[in-house]
Amino acid sequence: MRDMGWMVVVVLAAVLLSLYVTWTAGRVDRLHARAAAADAALDAHLVRRAAAAASLAEAAQHVPLMYAARIALDVPSQDREAAENDLTRQLRAVVAPDDPAFSAVISANRRVALARQVHTDVVRDALRARRRFTVRVLRLAVKHPVPTYFDIDDPTLDRAARPVTVLRKVRRSTDGAVPDASQPAPGHA
């Protein structure tokens, strides 16, 4: 009788544990799929912005902007962050935020900023899941490549819209450098 009781407890614990592991594995897969999709979406919006900048540069015969846009489109991935920052700087020099003539590039730029912020959030969620004990011990995340942040300056063009100085609290987490998508990096805003 006592053995039966133990059996029930052991079986129940095994069932609960396997349910938990299955659930966690599903959660990890989902978060990684989302991070990969966010990567693709951000890439698409960056290409759209560079294309809009290129056609603006052509119309305005603005050579530095033209170069920045071409470089952003062609650069190898390890240099992309610097190239996109450079394109943002060129756009800031050219674009008047209230002028309807620039609405295409302003809208493409805003979508980059938004896509990049969501990208940062979903990458953070995926990385956080990877650090969980169960995930590390059972190697639930090894089949997924490690998601990485896309570390560029806040690409906002409308400098007046947001204050440059923002409270910045050091978080306890072990993420290392967590770029905050919504705040301009010091020195570039």
């Binding site: 938004l114 912020q117 940062t120 959030d121 956080r128 923002v166 409270l167 905050d180 919504s182």
Partner: peptide, 26 residues
């Protein structure tokens, strides 16, 4: 983590996001 994208209606609400909930908000 079920939320895909976050919106804040004010700068203050956005700061709360960043500081207390560990995410950003548009």
């Amino acid at each position: 983590e079920r939320i895909t994208a976050r919106i804040a209606v004010s700068d203050l609400a956005r700061k709360v996001q960043v500081e207390h909930l560990g995410g950003s908000a548009w």
